[in-house]
Amino acid sequence: MAGVSALLSARGLRVAGPGGAALVDGVDLDLEAGEVTALVGESGAGKTLTGLALLGLVPPPARMEAGAVTLGGVDLGALAPRERRRVRGAGIALVPQDPAAALDPVARVGAQLAEVLRAHAPLGRREARIAASAALAEVGVDRDDHPHRLSGGQRQRALIAMALAPRPRVLVADEPTASLDPSVQVAVLDLIDARRREEGLAVLLISHDLGAVARVAGRVAVMYAGRIVEEGPARAVLSAPRHPYTAGLLALAPRLGAPRVRVPIPGAPPQPGRLPPGCAFAPRCPAAREECRAARPELRAAGPARRVACVLTDREAAALGRGPS
């Protein structure tokens, strides 16, 4: 926990699905200026919904049931809808999940970017168009193209340019590299990272890709079944995971020199609303014991700036990381 200095902090985020089942349950997040925080976990863990909850855009029929988000000390929940809208884009920007679908197919990218600029600054049409062309030229996209004429990488870069154009303080990047070639992935991450270094942008990087996370993230939060199960400095979490789930994810990540056969985590994540009574990961956990099934472990401090929701001690977790063989 970074404490009071965080640029954006979320407390007790809770998002419920149509049946009332918790999809995101009691998530706390702190994003520091100039730092990339990675949010990792399997599909369905609630990563995207957490990101959207920060923007106040939980898509129906899901809805945000509880939680507070403050940006630079301002409680976003207390803002009038119009002011809340202005925070989107200019305060907290989003790079959406699917670049193929996130651009308006019938409008030129330049016009779309200019529109975003004009929504946040008192620019004339001409000024906005010139600024939009420049922002797109920077990422190698022609403003007069329609989205369907762009490659996947160009679309993603155009979306990042759109998100960064109003100079946001926080960027939520939802799987920005998921559908891209490896070489393009690096370019896209560098684009975001440059803004972080130069302007102190705070980034929430939602990702499956632990390689990308290791490359750019300062902190890592691991989500499982709607909760954060481990959180801490990226280097520490990725080199010495304290939660068996993090260890399982790391064992799956491709790595040079690692054995080609990777052991998947057995079983599947639980359905929302059908969580086991104790630790949600217990049914799949290699180190689960009786107490894990009895009560859910809360997040607790575990070393410098680290928290984990697991009953295992340091030593037990370290042994787990080395594996039984």
Binding site: R85, G89, A102, L103, M162
Partner: peptide
């Protein structure tokens, strides 16, 4: 998706 994205851009 693109309508959701337009909202996220603050339009």
């Amino acid at each position: 998706e693109h309508v959701a994205a337009a909202r996220a851009h603050g339009l």
